[in-house]
Write a protein that binds this DNA or RNA. Structure first.
Length: 254
DNA sequence: ATTCTCACA
DNA sequence: TGTGAGAA
């Protein structure tokens, strides 16, 4: 009898919890070799193999129910198929993680940039063509609230994970987000009068729009398109009281 | 030390 | 799909 081990010994051997071993038994994927007179579960070599088999399939995110089916009735072809499915799932996961990684890197980089340039000055800079997806259109007086966000909700999944673009033109505000594909909306490449600023209250935004108009007329720039207000919403993670904005307008020097 | 059951995430 | 607590 001594060549068999108890459940806690098996759990230490395989680095899993005692609980989990019993759970596998309840689900019908691993049974003890026999149960001792004291009702203790006892396990031998075949059970150790079986447990590693189960654990391996679990690592591939295969549900226990399916492991049970596989143990009972799967052909080698079925197993091939099983692994191919897992491969696809794992690759999808890797893609997601890469996306997350890039998001983190972008955010850290942008945060550094905003930290290193606390200047609140206007500057003229060249900006490449950007494609916009129109999301919501509303009038200047209208406020954004949870309700109309919800009612105009589209297929948008990662709401505040990208920069929100507010385009001010013809007394309308159009809320957009940037896209890679070429859509009907676009912001032309060219020189833009730009400024970064922090906002604590809604009113600050309107103020900044007026200031931009002033700066523009002062320097005699003609505007060649909407005023673009970019909200770095995810950067507010670093500071709950402030949102970072960049305001832009395309200009032609006169 | 191990068993079972129940509640919980 | 597990985990944690409590009683036996």
């Amino acid at each position: 009898m001594k060549e068999y081990i108890t459940i806690s010994e098996l759990s230490k051997l395989m680095n899993v919890s005692v609980h989990q071993i019993r759970y596998f038994e309840e689900k019908g994927v691993l049974y003890p070799a026999y149960t001792d007179t004291n009702q203790y579960r006892m396990y031998g070599i075949p059970e150790i193999y079986q447990l590693s088999h189960v654990l391996l399939l679990r690592k591939l995110n295969i549900p226990v129910q399916q492991i049970k089916e596989s143990v009972m009735s799967y052909s080698t072809e079925d197993y091939r198929h099983l692994l191919e499915i897992s491969l696809r799932d794992i690759e999808a996961e890797i893609d997601q993680l890469i996306q997350l990684k890039q998001f983190i890197q972008r955010t850290l980089k942008e945060h550094n940039e905003t930290q290193n340039t606390p200047k609140e000055n206007y500057e003229v800079k060249y900006v490449e063509t950007r494609f916009m997806n129109k999301w919501i259109e509303f009038s200047e007086e209208e406020q954004i609230n949870a309700r109309n966000l919800y009612e105009k909700r589209g297929h948008l999944t990662n709401l505040f994970e990208s920069d929100l673009h507010y385009l001010y033109a013809d007394d309308k505000v159009t809320l957009c987000f940037e896209s890679n594909e070429s859509t009907d909306m676009r912001l032309e490449k060219g020189k833009y009068l730009t400024k970064r600023f922090l906002v604590t209250e809604e009113n600050d935004i309107l103020e900044e729009i007026n200031k931009l108009h002033e700066a523009q007329t002062e320097k005699q720039y003609a505007s060649l398109g909407p005023i673009v207000l970019i909200e770095r919403s995810y950067l507010s993670m670093f500071d709950n009281h402030n949102l970072i904005y960049e305001i832009q307008v395309k200009i032609s020097e006169v």
